[in-house]
Write a protein that binds this DNA or RNA. Structure first.
Lengths: 213, 213
DNA sequence: CTTAACCGGAGCGCTCTGCTCCGGTAGGAA
DNA sequence: TTCCTACCGGAGCAGAGCGCTCCGGTTAAG
């Protein structure tokens, strides 16, 4: 624990660097190819051997859990940053753009296939609470259409984070930005077309994470 | 060819019924589970043996080609219906809603993995031309934001047709309708936020269908 | 120089896929 | 009714691809 900096030249430094590369590579691969991408692809992308990967994470599930947790923490940060904005609309937009930008919901398809750790549960609840405050504030300020819920917005971000077909490209990212701009405009008050039916229920949303095979 | 109706009771009638069930089942399975779903799942869902499936379609690729063609034809019909609307906006909205409804773009991830038949190419060109007219008409009527292109809308529909995680449910369809309503509102003129960057190019869009392994 | 921690990747076992093949069955002609 | 034949259904095959292990080579540390 003496020279644990990532810039060092010792063996421990290499280990720390490997861990960071691994996390980045895993995020990249999973968000672009889906969570059922082979583990070997992650190791290759990180420039690291399988041995090093499996010494750090004893199983693929463990790696996914870590990734989910990090994504949730980034979402929490984005929400806090959004709440720090004076303008309620810009705060919400920042939150949505940030989450979509780093692929917040890309790991949603993993729901129900991995165990939810206690830490993940805690962070998820905190993220939901912050998002709620962000949405409520925007609605009360009259800058968000009043028939949309925080859950709608979560699912919207999830939809935008689905892996695109084919190899990842700058074109895809660009198109996504344009589509998101359109959708954000659609979120602003007042909605021209009332949203159909009842808002989705929270219980259904959370139930997807239950592992019941 | 005498009693080829699907309601008959003979052997030929059963064959015709099987073919229809197969097509429906394949559409359902591929749009909800992705195009790499096992062929056996389709046979099971159609209540048909593997033998019957592979007697009708000699390979999985052939089945996918047929499905793509049908989807394109349905898109063409939706566009023609849309053009028949007197209101340019309602016409465009009908087109988008219909295509998203039957999962028009769900087969997009198949791009580059199957051979494009001549019939598919012809139909695709016709679909694009009709969509262009639909979009141009709406823009010239001033009911569509003028920084959005027909290609943006195609990609938007594609995004909405991505298979949802987990088992298919009415909840998912409902949420999708709500999100689509939001996005359609965002498409109406004038856009509050100008779309970032240049519109996507047609060559890139079509290039994805080239098989170059 | 010795030692042991740690890196990288070849390989194992297993699951699951696209596809084939054949026994059973039920229409149609005599 | 009886036989024939076309067709239906699913068990099974070969192969690909996966998660994961294990071990030889390398290099920092003592």
């Amino acid at each position: 624990m003496s020279t644990a900096g990532t810039g060092g030249r010792g063996r421990r430094a290499e280990a720390a660097r490997n861990d960071l590369r691994l996390l980045e590579a895993a995020h990249e691969v999973f968000t672009t190819q889906g969570f059922d991408a082979p583990v070997s692809a992650i190791a290759k992308r990180a420039g690291v051997g399988m041995g090093s990967l499996y010494r750090r994470y004893r199983t693929k599930e463990e790696l996914l859990q870590r990734l989910c947790l990090i994504a949730m923490e980034r979402a929490v940060t984005a929400a806090e940053d959004g709440l720090a904005f004076a303008d309620p609309w810009e705060g919400l937009a920042h939150y949505v753009r940030t989450c979509v930008g780093f692929g917040s919901g890309a790991l949603a398809p993993v729901a129900g296939t991995i165990e939810v750790t206690e830490e993940m549960g805690t962070t998820a609840r905190r993220a939901i609470e912050l998002a709620d405050r962000l949405v409520t504030r925007a609605r009360e300020a009259g800058v968000l259409r009043d028939d949309v819920t925080a859950l709608d917005i979560s699912l919207l971000m999830e939809q935008f984070s689905r892996p695109a077909p084919g190899p990842p490209s700058e074109q895809h990212r660009h198109v996504k930005r344009r589509l998101l701009a359109i959708t954000l405009d659609g979120l602003r008050a007042p909605g021209v077309t009332p949203l159909p039916g009842d808002p989705p229920g929270v219980d259904w949303y959370e139930g997807r994470w239950r592992t019941t095979p």
